[in-house]
């Protein structure tokens, strides 16, 4: 499916956010790398998908009404065996049922688990005053605590993204500290640039939140994608 079709189907379903599996399909169209994944509706499909992807895997709830997945126990990391995955499926659905009640569940995302890199965040919004803007900053919860972020207007090129990156504290870590190898800064910049392209080329997007984004010495991947549509 092309992104136009995905977005049209979101609107016709009345979704405020693009479901995560579809968000990755859009990412792929814009050369934004993400781990291998499969969207499944049954445990059997899930076990099969995990074999294809390779263990360990991460599973996540996919529901149009669950935006903050972790808060309802809707994410389980590091499942290493079919047995663990089997149990994980049950636990995930139980968590969500307990904490989010009878929300509609579209299915489950089975995602390749990545080794630990440097966690950063990339995002963007169509701002009422500035138009499309992209954000880069520290990942995970650090982004909220330290407000370690830097903005640029989109579109922007690789060099501008590099300067944006260098304004943050996250950059100091990405460069490599205490003998750790430097991350692939060009790959991180590429994600920033392409997030800008998403916002400038798709006028229906209100906000984009890629957090975390994992940076490695040889690449950079979006591990969680939340894309909000305009009303």
């Amino acid at each position: 499916m092309k992104y136009e079709d995905i977005i049209a189907s979101c609107y016709s379903n009345g979704y405020g956010f693009i479901p995560e599996p579809d968000a990755y399909k859009i990412c792929a169209e814009f050369a934004i790398p993400h781990p291998r994944f499969s969207f499944v509706r049954t445990k059997k499909e899930g076990l099969h998908a995990a074999e294809e992807i390779g263990y360990p895997v991460v599973i996540k709830i996919v529901s149009p009404e669950v935006i903050h997945k972790s808060e309802v126990g809707g994410v389980i990391l590091d499942l290493r065996t079919p047995q663990e995955l089997d149990e994980g499926f049950d636990r995930l659905l139980k968590n969500v049922r307990e904490k989010a009640g009878g929300v509609p569940i579209s299915g489950i995302l089975v995602q390749q688990s990545m080794s630990a890199g440097v966690e950063v965040a990339v995002g963007g919004a169509d701002n009422p005053q500035f138009g499309p803007v992209v954000m880069f900053g520290s990942g995970g919860i650090l982004i909220e605590v330290f407000k370690d972020v830097s903005f640029r207007l989109a579109p922007l090129d690789q060099e501008e993204a590099r300067r944006q990156l260098e304004e943050t504290m996250a950059y100091e870590i990405l460069k490599g500290v205490r003998g750790r190898p430097a991350c692939d800064l060009e790959a991180v910049c590429q994600v920033i640039v392409n997030t800008g392209r998403l916002l400038t080329e798709i006028p229906q997007l209100a906000e984009i939140d890629f957090n975390p984004v994992q940076a490695f010495p040889d690449g950079c991947f979006v591990l969680d994608a939340r894309i909000k549509l305009k009303n």
């Binding site: 995002g123 963007g124 919004a125 803007v133 972020v149 903005f151 984009i208 939140d209 909000k228």
Partner: peptide
Amino acid sequence: QTHTGSIAGSDAIYDGA
């Protein structure tokens, strides 16, 4: 509703812009 939205105060955007 998203991290980006909640911290994207226009002042921080002015800074970068």
